[in-house]
């Protein structure tokens, strides 16, 4: 019974070309056009601000005016499907990638992808990273078959652009400067304790971690990484992976019960 009214209301909310819903009444005017315009505006402004909060580096790269205008187009086309706003904009990066006015900044969507991963890491479950001392107690003969449990917050973001540098420059981590080395950077995003951390991965690192995170045993993951980059350094990557707190457990697949604490 309220379906048609709600539909008309929702459509008019995001499309100013549509008339104010006729069913709206107030004690001053009917339909209350001005009040509806305020509400219409606040809905869009509120969602644009939510995106600006989630994608501050993207906003800094393009400037507030461009960002607000771009976000507005996205908001109109993609209103939230959930009342939980903290993940609103998961598909903003796809929108940016296909948004023609942003085409001259081909790295922008990947920076957005990094920022989206950071928000997910921020809200991911708490977990204690693996104690490196446990590694010394592992059976050496079975090392190649070891698998890991990734930290719930850990995510890999790969890019053919220097996104870690670009992000860091726009998140206040390093100074803004021309980027001499315009080669791609892969990022590990993880929140081992209270703060979300972003680390640039060395050659083959993303392939190695992606394989491990997907459940591949250590030897196979190292083989995949070597296949992608001859410069892959297993020791450095193991140290980095553990040191970053991106692993919570190691175990042998055929000995599930002997899972390390």
């Amino acid at each position: 019974m309220f379906g048609p009214i709600q539909n008309t209301f929702a459509l008019a909310l995001l499309d100013p070309q549509r008339p104010v819903p006729g069913a709206l009444v107030s004690h001053t005017a009917s339909p209350p056009a001005k009040r509806f315009a305020v509400y219409r505006n606040n809905v869009v402004v509120g969602l644009v601000n939510a995106l600006a909060k989630r994608f501050p580096a993207v906003q800094r790269i393009v400037g507030e005016e461009f960002f607000a205008a771009m976000a507005r187009v996205f908001v109109i086309e993609n209103p939230p499907r959930s009342p939980v706003l903290m993940f609103y904009g998961d598909d903003f990066l796809d929108f940016i990638a296909s948004f023609e006015p942003a085409a001259e900044l081909p790295y922008l969507a990947d920076v957005a992808r990094l920022e989206a991963a950071r928000t997910r890491a921020y809200h991911a479950a708490e977990a204690k990273p693996l104690d490196p001392a446990i590694l010394q107690s592992l059976d050496k003969a079975a090392l190649g078959e070891i698998r890991i449990v990734p930290h719930p917050s850990a995510e890999i973001v790969r890019s053919k652009f220097p996104i870690v540098t670009i992000w860091a420059m726009n998140a206040g981590e390093i100074e803004l400067a021309p980027i001499e080395d315009w080669s791609g950077e892969d990022a590990l995003v993880v929140r081992p304790a209270l703060e979300v951390e972003v680390r640039a991965l060395p050659a083959g690192g993303a392939a190695f971690l992606s394989a491990l995170f997907a459940g591949a045993p250590l030897a196979a993951a190292a083989g995949t990484a070597l296949g992608e980059s001859a410069d892959f350094d297993l020791a450095a990557n193991l140290a980095g992976l553990i040191g970053a707190g991106a692993v919570t457990k190691v175990f042998l697949a055929n000995l599930q019960k002997d899972e390390m604490p």
Binding site: P56, A57, R118, Y122, V164, W167, A168, A171, G172, E173, E185, L188, E195, V196, E197, V198, R199, A200, L201, P202, A203, G205, A236, N237, A239, G240, L241, G243, A244
Partner: peptide, 11 residues
Amino acid sequence: KCYGISLKGQN
């Protein structure tokens, strides 16, 4: 380019 660098940004 290595894991050793941890960038935090603002939460």
